[in-house]
């Protein structure tokens, strides 16, 4: 994955769920994501490929669920931020920061990648 070079590039990136992710919806309508645990690169290299990593579960809040439901493989980070700003009546710059932070956190857990 190529790293975005600038803020404009980052906003044009399209977040996509990584393979091996399973999602369920809780009784409150919140998304629960089950994903393989992420390991340190050196540890991942030592483990044989046949070893299945334990699954971790992450429950998103209402705002996270809203963003997750709008990730469809075509919507860019900027599109998501605009939808968040419109839906939650927040400042465009604030929505951009919030969405970027959300995507970064899910990326660190190996849930999302950028295309």
């Amino acid at each position: 994955m190529q790293q975005p070079q600038s803020k404009a590039d980052a906003l044009c990136a399209v977040p996509v769920p990584m393979p091996g992710i399973r999602t369920t919806v809780s009784d409150q309508g919140l998304v629960r994501i089950s994903h393989p645990a992420t390991l340190k690169p050196w540890l991942a290299r030592l483990l044989p490929a046949s070893v299945a990593l334990p699954l971790r579960t992450l429950e998103l809040d209402a705002m996270g669920t809203f963003v997750w439901n709008h990730i469809d493989g075509t919507a860019t980070v900027d599109d998501l931020a605009r939808q968040v700003a419109q839906h939650y009546a927040c400042l465009p710059a604030e929505a951009q920061q919030a969405v970027a932070m959300f995507i970064r956190q899910l990326g660190q857990r190996g849930i999302l990648g950028l295309r």
Binding site: D61, Y88, A89, C90, E94
Partner: peptide
Amino acid sequence: LAPASVLLA
């Protein structure tokens, strides 16, 4: 604090 709809739930 925002969004209130999420915080108040």
